[in-house]
């Protein structure tokens, strides 16, 4: 909204609070968009090459060490070729992919944090207001999510509280955990510092945590993509490519929005949930 020309401003809504349904509004700035796609690429390559690395020894342990004779807590499945990079067994090549994209992932995240603080994206969009955290507001947000009721009007231009919580947890907790746990699997890095290993209880534990955190990232991606599809993929993806977002007119009938995008079975499920809720209310 800052770098708008006057001409564009006349056609498009420059001020998010004044945005009305149907307006095009500038939602995502360039650094956010660049990081989003670079990071998406890095994370997908890391996940897929990581599954190949898991295939090399698909057993997870707790503690200082763990090998075939030791007590394990989980045997991950052998991941099929279409989920791994490369698609046929090659641990060396998977590691080469993994350790290259780890640099893009780690320094991308660092840059995102530094730029996000400098251009106040973090302070403005990812911090909680007192009102955000009131129990009534939280509960309303939970209900809106459960019913897939997407925000409309100006509210669609800022993150809702569950969205903020998720992004804060992913950016400041989950992704850094991934970096620290991955780095701590390196015997060379352990010689520099091994307090992260001591903190969690050893390398086998750290490897398990790395795997679990990867699972959480995969779960985040799945939910994220489903929500993008349900909220209107054209508009959402465009806003992450160009920055411009068409403000959904409100109040929209959630059933209408759903019917457009959700697979019918999901639509039917939520229609039933809503009917039951209405009957309960009546």
């Amino acid at each position: 909204m800052i770098d708008l020309t006057a001409q564009a401003a006349s056609k498009r809504s420059p001020e998010p609070l004044a945005a009305k349904g149907g307006d095009l509004a500038y939602k995502h700035r360039l650094p956010t968009r660049l990081w989003h796609w670079t990071n998406a690429l890095a994370v997908i390559v890391l996940l897929m090459s990581g599954l190949m690395i898991s295939n090399a020894h698909p057993h997870l342990y707790w503690g200082l060490f763990g090998a075939n004779f030791d007590q394990l807590w989980f045997n991950p499945p052998r991941f099929p070729g279409w989920t791994t990079i490369p698609s046929t067994y090659n641990l060396a090549l998977a590691r080469t992919w993994h350790l290259f994209f780890a640099w893009i992932f780690a320094f991308g995240l660092l840059a995102h944090m530094v730029i996000g603080l400098a251009n106040r994206h973090i302070q403005r969009d990812l911090t909680f207001r007192r009102a955000d955290l009131s129990p009534a507001h939280l509960w309303q947000d939970v209900k809106d999510h459960a019913r897939l009721r997407f925000p409309t009007g100006a509210a669609a231009l800022s993150y809702n509280v569950i969205q903020k919580m998720t992004y804060v947890a992913v950016i400041f907790l989950l992704l850094p955990t991934m970096i620290v746990s991955g780095l701590s699997l390196s015997p060379g890095f352990n010689a520099v510092m091994h307090w992260p290993l001591d903190l969690v209880g050893g390398r086998a534990t750290m490897r398990s945590l790395h795997f679990i955190a990867a699972g959480l990232i995969a779960a985040f991606i799945a939910v994220h993509v489903v929500l993008v599809v349900l909220a209107g993929p054209y508009n959402e993806i465009r806003s992450m490519l160009t920055g411009w977002f068409r403000v959904p007119p409100g109040p929209v009938e959630p059933a209408v929005a759903r019917e457009r995008w959700a697979p019918r079975i999901i639509g039917q499920y939520f229609a039933r949930v809503e009917r039951t809720a209405q009957e309960d209310a009546a």
Binding site: P86, S87, T96, F101, S186, G188, V192
Partner: peptide
């Protein structure tokens, strides 16, 4: 595409700069 890229020698050289980076950085930190 990933499999093809992984077999391409120039791309492999690019990926292997990650290894060189790890060697340099770990030697620097250690």
């Amino acid at each position: 595409g990933c499999d093809r890229l992984g077999r391409d020698e120039r791309f492999q050289r690019l990926l292997r700069t990650g290894e060189g980076g790890n060697y340099a950085v770990l030697r620097l930190l250690q």
